[in-house]
Amino acid sequence: MSADPVTPPARNTRPPLAQAALGVGVIVEDGRGRVLLGRHHSGTWELPGGKVDATHESIAAAAARELREETGLVVDEAAVDVIAMVHDAIGGINRVSMAALVRLASGVPEVTEPHLISTWRWTVPEELPAPLFDPSAQILAAWRPELGITHPPAHVLRIATDENSA
């Protein structure tokens, strides 16, 4: 008896065992070259961002959604430039953080999740506050390695964009 050619093999229909967490950190740069950082109640400073939904959400869509949910700033998915993938491991799980860049001419961020973030602040990249949340530090270092940001070791894969491949 032969297999039905329309039915995919069973291994294509079973989800793999979870071994990774996928997130996105959004570098929001204003017209003056400053970046947006939030002060988490734990004491660290972090970029807006979070988990990529396990739907069919793209990285750019997740970045736009997280930015809107966390700061009230609204950007179109097309305005999100995914620039790098950062990979490390924590607690035996691969952590994959996508670095996204958004440039805004203007905007006033709001604290929309006061149970997590106490304030949002525009900061000159050369004067970043400490301590930074590790994934945010890794993403900022992937974006601007010349800043010499201290962070846990991570693998970085830069993603060519129209802007940086020209």
Rank of each mutant, 00 (worst) to 15 (best):
S2R: 03
P5R: 00
V6D: 07
V6M: 07
T7N: 08
T7S: 09
P8I: 01
P8Y: 01
R11T: 12
R14K: 15
P15A: 12
P15L: 13
P16Y: 09
L17W: 09
A18G: 14
A20F: 07
A20N: 11
A21S: 13
A21H: 10
L22P: 09
G25H: 10
V26P: 11
V26Y: 07
V28I: 11
E29M: 13
D30G: 09
D30H: 13
G31F: 11
R34N: 13
G38R: 13
R39A: 15
H41V: 15
H41N: 15
G43D: 09
W45R: 11
E46V: 10
G49T: 08
G49S: 03
G49Q: 03
G50F: 04
G50T: 03
K51D: 11
V52Y: 01
D53M: 12
A54R: 14
A54M: 11
H56A: 15
H56Q: 12
S58I: 04
S58M: 05
S58Q: 11
I59V: 15
A60V: 08
A61C: 06
A62D: 05
A63K: 07
A63S: 10
R65W: 01
L67A: 02
L67E: 03
L67R: 05
E69N: 10
E69A: 09
E70M: 03
E70V: 07
E70I: 06
G72P: 02
L73P: 02
L73M: 00
V74K: 12
V74R: 13
V74G: 00
V75P: 04
D76M: 01
E77R: 02
A78W: 00
A78F: 01
I83L: 13
I83Q: 13
A84Y: 01
V86A: 02
V86I: 12
D88S: 15
D88C: 09
D88I: 00
I90R: 12
G91I: 02
G91V: 02
G92C: 00
G92T: 00
I93T: 14
N94I: 12
A100S: 14
L101H: 12
L101D: 01
L101G: 01
V102Y: 03
R103A: 06
L104V: 15
L104G: 07
S106M: 04
S106T: 11
V108W: 05
V108L: 13
P109Y: 05
P109M: 10
E110Q: 15
E113R: 15
H115A: 15
H115C: 12
H115T: 14
H115P: 08
I117S: 11
S118P: 06
R121P: 04
T123G: 06
P125L: 05
P125I: 06
E126G: 14
L132S: 08
F133K: 08
D134R: 07
D134G: 04
P135W: 06
S136E: 01
A137W: 01
A137S: 09
A137T: 07
Q138F: 05
Q138T: 02
I139G: 04
A142R: 02
A142W: 00
P145W: 00
P145H: 02
P145N: 08
P145A: 06
L147T: 10
G148K: 07
G148C: 05
G148E: 02
I149Q: 09
H151I: 00
H151K: 02
P153F: 04
P153K: 02
V156F: 05
V156A: 00
A160Y: 02
A160L: 13
T161C: 03
N164R: 14
S165I: 10
S165L: 07
S165D: 14
